Amino acid sequence: MTHAHQHAARHGAHHDHQHGSAAQAEILDLDAQVLAEHIAAVTAWLPVRTAPHQIVDLGCGTGAGTFALLTRFPEAHVTAFDSSAEHLHSLREKARAQGVEGRVRTVQADLDAERPDLGTPDLVWASASMHHMADPDRTMREVHDTLVPGGLFAVVELAGSPRFLPEDAPHDRPGLEERCHAASDRFHAEHVPHRGADWGPRLTAAGFTVEGERTLTVDIEGSRDEAIGRYALASLQGVRGSVADALSAEDLAALDRLLDTDGPHSILARDDLVVRTERTVWAARRD
């Protein structure tokens, strides 16, 4: 899975499967669109020794990492793994539209329940997916053993969920967004225990040499970008599912006013949105 605010999308509201998958796909696509430059910066930073030819994208989602890697390494082929058939279908449709379908292979697999053949890749990319795994340390050992000698494992994680609103917003419940995320963090600490992990020592324990760690700070002015409004809406819709029971009645009502796209207080009507988040990447070498 890629990237994003995806924590809330994947672990948020109790939707039926079809709606939940559609909501996840939307937020993954918006994340890829809004943060495209930052994803490209991560791929440009990777300390590869030679351009990789075989790449594995673990938890590819709808393909943000896959397509960034195909652009960064024009001779490479990517095998994209995800548990969602819908996400993989979307990825294949995008590959056809971009004329790169011959360079992409998709594999539907639950990496917790199955041990699919990863081949012998030069580069393995895992963006916002490791923390979802029941036993990420086992997965890291398996990645280590399947990489070619000298191959690279890139683990990318967001530092929490992105923020969009000014601190004094909304005017009747200032600080609402931070209170929502504090409640969401408590929810995730219970349900997603590996979220926010320091992956460096765990990569070392799995046999890797960690050659680099970099944190990219994202701070995007969004008042003129319609996609950022939709990104903020989708993100907060996802957060609502995990925090509704923890918020005060006043805060929940204020959040619902932001999420009411037909109302006068809709987040889509605001002209003061930004995107503030951090993305950290660890580059680990198999010696």
Rank of each mutant, 00 (worst) to 15 (best):
G65H: 01
A40T: 09
T71G: 01
P74Q: 03
L69V: 06
V42W: 03
E75Y: 03
E37N: 11
P74M: 08
Q54N: 12
L70M: 03
A36D: 10
Q54A: 15
C60K: 08
R49K: 13
A64W: 04
A68D: 05
I39A: 14
P47S: 07
A44L: 06
G65M: 03
A36K: 13
W45D: 11
I39Y: 13
L69T: 02
G63T: 08
Q54T: 14
I39Q: 08
A40N: 07
E37C: 05
V42M: 11
A64Q: 02
E37H: 14
T62Q: 05
I55W: 07
A76C: 06
A51T: 12
V42Q: 10
T62H: 03
T71M: 00
P47G: 11
T66S: 10
L69N: 09
A41V: 07
L46D: 07
A41Q: 07
I39S: 13
T43Y: 02
L58P: 02
E37V: 02
E37A: 15
F67P: 01
F67H: 00
A76G: 06
H53E: 15
A36G: 01
L69C: 07
V42R: 12
P52A: 15
A64I: 00
P74H: 03
I39E: 06
V56F: 04
T71V: 05
W45H: 12
E37D: 15
A36Y: 02
E37R: 13
E75A: 13
T50I: 09
T66Y: 05
L46V: 14
A36I: 04
T50D: 13
V56T: 13
T43A: 15
R72E: 10
L46C: 08
H53G: 15
G61K: 08
A76M: 04
T71I: 00
A36T: 08
T62L: 07
I55Y: 08
W45V: 12
Q54D: 15
T50F: 01
A68P: 00
D57G: 09
H38K: 10
A76F: 03
T62M: 07
R72A: 15
R72L: 02
F67Y: 02
L46M: 15
G59N: 09
A36W: 01
T66W: 03
T43G: 05
T66V: 11
T43L: 12
W45L: 11
T50P: 00
A76R: 00
E75W: 04
F67L: 03
G63A: 12
V48R: 05
L58Q: 10
V42T: 12
L70T: 09
T66K: 09
A40P: 02
I39K: 09
R49N: 10
G59Q: 08
A76Q: 03
A51Q: 13
W45I: 12
A51D: 13
V42F: 05
E75T: 12
L46S: 09
P47R: 06
I39C: 09
A41P: 00
L70G: 04
W45M: 07
V56D: 04
D57N: 10
G63P: 03
C60T: 14
A44D: 14
L69P: 01
T62N: 08
G63N: 06
W45K: 11
D57Q: 06
A36S: 10
T50W: 02
C60M: 07
A68H: 05
A76L: 05
Q54L: 08
G59Y: 14
E75C: 01
A76V: 06
L69Q: 05
F67R: 01
L58N: 07
A41C: 01
